[in-house]
Amino acid sequence: MTHRTSAVAAAKTSGGRRISSLDLLRGVAILGTFGTNVFLFAHPGGPMGFFQDFTGAATTFTERAEIGLRLLSNGKFLALLTILFGVGLELQYQSSRRRGVPWPGRYPLRAGILFLEGFAHYLLVFEGDVLMAYGLTSLLVAYLVGRSDRVVRNVIVVVGGVYATLLLAVTALLVATPDISGEPPPVDPSATASWPAQVSVRLNDFLLLRAEIILIVPSAVVLFLLGSRLRRAGVFDDTAEGRRLRFRLLILGFAVGLPLNVLTAFSGPDWLLVDRYLLPPLVALGLLALVTHLALRMRDTPGIVRSGLMSVGRTALSCYVLQNLLAGILCYGWGFGLAERFADARPWWIVGLWGFVGLVNVAFAAVWLRYFERGPLELLMHRLYTPRRRTD
């Protein structure tokens, strides 16, 4: 089957209908991503303080427990969210083909809006924003998604291969180099005492704080394209081919990726790049297969948990920003200052913080969707992206 024929077949399969398992997956990915970010907010020195402390091997039970908790989410749900962005881009490509609209058409404008929303989120809310990287990636991938399967496969192999080789080379260098870092500098709670001061730091140290984009974009190009092709391959379909594909992803994610990820998580900070950027995408593929399989098996009306997650998934962009905004208000000194107040209760109180913010997110999404079809940021993006019809 040629790439054009397969794309048309995938478009007919979707038929413009909403894929409910995608909403469930997005909800899981959004709340799971906060499971990583919450540790940055909950540090008394904020994200910068967290990375200053990220040196040396864990020696106490509490330190090992925190590593174990971070292992549950670190990089995995971000990779899942990235794959789902690629699936969403593929669905938009299919929609354009069904309607006979040239591709990418106005999509670069959508990517630009996402980038600007990410910049505002970075500047005003959180140093660890990923929306800017997604905006850049979607602009690149928009011109690749419609190419032949051979071209896409070559891009995945070349970009992914170079990316993995470089990260493994840097990791080998870190492992081989003696650790001379010494004790980390003392935590400075004043770093989060003033919101205007935080904004100023994010603006003045933009290049330093946004350096992670260099690591995210190449990986995201691969995962976007992988999400696109998994959609075409029928990973979300209740067919024999879909079940076989999901089974292979389950094996790859949980029998290969997860054990290796556990090993690197407890191997010290020298393995950070492998632990966060190389192995989590494998686990994310297993998560995608598992959640999709469960969603296809559950034919009944969604219960409170599933409907809550699906509501978050339908308002994913808004909930992503909301959970980071809530965490800043609760944790930072200019808000309730819980990070400094409960510094001695790490990591246990962080679990409660994650649960509380997650419940607020679910409640917000469920109530909002009673009155609106899209989340607030989704509505804003839709209005900016959709051309206004002339009324003569």
Results as ranks from 00 to 15, higher is better:
1 M>Y: 11
4 R>S: 15
5 T>W: 03
6 S>N: 14
7 A>M: 10
7 A>I: 02
15 G>S: 08
19 I>C: 09
22 L>P: 03
27 G>I: 00
32 G>P: 08
33 T>M: 15
34 F>P: 03
36 T>H: 05
40 L>C: 05
43 H>C: 13
53 D>H: 10
55 T>G: 05
63 E>A: 13
70 R>G: 15
100 G>E: 10
105 G>S: 05
106 R>M: 08
120 A>D: 11
130 V>L: 08
131 L>V: 01
133 A>G: 06
134 Y>W: 15
138 S>N: 01
139 L>M: 13
142 A>N: 01
143 Y>N: 04
147 R>V: 03
157 V>Q: 09
158 V>D: 00
158 V>Y: 05
165 T>Y: 10
168 L>M: 14
178 P>Q: 06
182 G>T: 03
199 V>L: 14
200 S>K: 10
206 F>D: 04
213 I>C: 07
215 L>V: 02
219 S>E: 14
223 L>K: 10
232 R>H: 04
249 L>D: 09
251 I>T: 01
256 V>P: 06
256 V>C: 08
258 L>F: 11
270 D>Q: 15
282 L>E: 00
287 L>Y: 15
289 A>E: 08
303 G>D: 09
307 S>P: 07
310 M>W: 02
318 S>F: 09
322 L>E: 09
326 L>Y: 07
331 C>T: 02
343 A>N: 09
344 D>L: 12
379 L>R: 11
384 L>R: 00
389 R>P: 04
389 R>W: 06
392 D>F: 10
